[in-house]
């Protein structure tokens, strides 16, 4: 049975789903841009933040950057597979991306557990409040992306809704982008 679907918007000349994802990313720029910019200003304006930031685990942050960059690779390869109408390969690569998100969260939870056990809680000082808020907000986006990709992968494996592979990938690349800036701010600038 053929069902009606919205394909290309007349005004913008692009598929509805992709347009929606770009609008989502645009709104996220303001959210994460505000968070990152505020952090940067506080970091420059308050020298005590530099002392507090010395206790973040650079190696955990670097490993998670490696994981997210790799998951972005699998997401774009999934998109490539979807363009070739190879739904099964696209689904496998999306599951690899979801796995990357899972590894990221596991490392993050180990890192947070260690920090909390050492007394660096969200109420320890303003740096740690910001650290948990920014990284936590990012972590929620990772979880959201993983959930979305599970549904997209399930359809893609059946060769359905392959255009969604690209849309999910766009969102995932943005999540990766946010981490690319969070990493030097929270882990390297000490």
């Amino acid at each position: 049975m053929i069902r009606p679907i919205a394909t290309t918007r007349e005004m913008t000349g692009m598929p509805t789903g992709r347009l929606a994802v770009w609008w989502l990313i645009a709104s996220e720029i303001v959210i994460f841009g505000g968070v990152l910019g505020s952090y940067l200003m506080h970091r420059i304006g308050h020298k005590e933040w530099a002392a507090a930031s010395e206790h973040t685990n650079t190696w955990a942050g670097a490993f998670n950057t490696l994981v997210l960059l790799t998951s972005s690779l699998s997401a774009v390869l999934a998109h490539n597979a979807a363009l070739r109408k190879d739904g099964k390969r696209a689904a496998k690569l999306l599951w690899a991306t979801i796995g990357g998100g899972g590894i990221f969260l596991v490392v993050k939870s180990i890192e947070w557990t260690t920090e909390i056990q050492h007394g660096y809680t969200i109420t320890a000082n303003n740096f740690w409040s910001f650290y948990y808020t920014a990284a936590g907000l990012h972590g929620l986006h990772v979880i959201a992306g993983m959930i979305v990709m599970m549904f997209v992968a399930a359809d893609a494996a059946k060769g359905k809704e392959l255009q969604r592979v690209e849309n999910a990938g766009l969102y995932w690349h943005f999540v990766d982008l946010v981490w690319i800036f969070l990493f030097p701010l929270l882990y390297i600038a000490k």
């Binding site: 919205a6 692009m14 774009v76 390869l77 739904g87 809704e161």
Partner: peptide, 27 residues
């Protein structure tokens, strides 16, 4: 406002950025 078409959903993959056409090795 939207241009609604009757087409199998899977065909919509063609609306992606197929213009770039990079092989996997590029990525």
């Amino acid at each position: 406002m939207s241009d609604t078409a009757h087409a199998p959903a899977s065909n919509d993959a063609a609306h992606g950025h197929d213009a770039h056409g990079h092989p996997d090795s590029f990525y």
